[in-house]
């Protein structure tokens, strides 16, 4: 997959150390417009840390991050969101005590701009923003099959549904790139399947998606390219087929057991 376009999101030599712990070491990554990019690796490989560096939660110890060719190294999460880099979290950071609709409405924050004054006087801008937020949120909820749960408190939903709400909320940013941290964790197989279909559909609509996932079937069937991390280092990058046959990946990630290896087939 040699490509001459400028990548949408690019990481160059990213290192992240926590004291003496090297969580991420010299990782390069290039995500192109319109692909589904997978990041895999055993537990503790530094995937989530890498994600957090990319979305501004942590500044990197070394290295640079470019978004649409612009250097965004060390920007705050708010700024990253304003550049329309949207993400979900591994351990679900939903507003549990708010309704599903309100959750998604907060996602519309950066797309609206009314301030305190607008709110008090109820200016045109306020009405426009509110209308936009509600319409947009309901649209997204319809597309992700959550419309009927719009007035349910988010924390009351099942785990799989909560993950979908989080994706819906991220979509409200109109993201240029969507980073999903283990979106299928805690889902049962049918849920996982439907999520995969949904992600593929989003991709066809033009969203660029990066996904960290443990579910091999999920990654192999949906991603166009895969980055493999182990102990914070990049050990391989390539298409799902290349990853399947790569020896290093096999031994590092899947261990020596046959059972794990068979999961690939």
């Amino acid at each position: 997959m040699a490509d001459t376009r400028t990548p949408l999101l690019e990481a160059k030599g990213i290192c992240k150390y926590f004291g003496g712990l090297k969580a991420v070491e010299e990782v390069d990554m290039q995500i192109m417009q319109g692909e589904i990019f997978g990041i895999i690796g055993p537990n503790g490989a530094g995937k989530t840390t890498f994600f957090n560096v990319c979305t501004g939660i942590y500044p990197p110890t070394k290295g640079k991050i470019y978004f649409e060719g612009e250097d965004i190294t060390g920007i705050s999460p708010e700024k990253a969101a304003q550049k329309r880099i949207a993400r979900t979290f591994q351990n679900l950071q939903l507003f549990k005590f708010m309704t599903v609709l309100d959750n998604v409405k907060i996602g519309c924050h950066i797309k609206t701009s009314s301030n305190l004054f607008d709110a008090v006087v109820r200016t045109k801008k306020y009405h426009r923003d509110e209308e936009y937020a509600i319409e947009k949120s309901l649209d997204i909820l319809r597309s992700i099959d959550l419309y009927e749960y719009r007035d349910t408190m988010a924390g009351n939903l099942s785990y799989g549904m909560q993950r979908k709400v989080e994706i819906a909320r991220a979509l409200a940013l109109d993201p240029k790139i969507l980073l999903l941290d283990e979106p299928a964790a805690g889902m049962n197989p049918p849920e996982t399947r439907s999520l995969m279909e949904f992600i593929k559909m989003l991709n066809q609509e033009g969203y660029t998606i990066t996904v960290i996932e443990h579910d091999m079937k999920f990654v192999m069937n949906s991603c166009s390219r895969i980055l493999v991390l182990n102990f914070g280092e990049k050990i391989f990058e390539g298409t799902p087929d290349e990853v399947k046959v790569n020896q290093e990946v096999q031994s590092a990630y899947f261990g020596r057991g046959l059972v794990a290896g068979e999961a690939l087939k």
């Binding site: 999460p77 708010e78 969101a81 907060i106 009314s114 305190l116 709110a119 008090v120 409200a172």
Partner: peptide, 28 residues
């Protein structure tokens, strides 16, 4: 009126989960 607006929602989002609020672009 304030609470029913974008500003009020931003406040409540900070109360409920500051990290999530940040990741959605709310300048906390």
């Amino acid at each position: 009126r304030v609470l029913q607006s974008r500003v009020g929602r931003a406040w409540i989002s900070i109360r409920e989960d500051e990290i999530a609020a940040k990741s959605l672009g709310v300048q906390t």
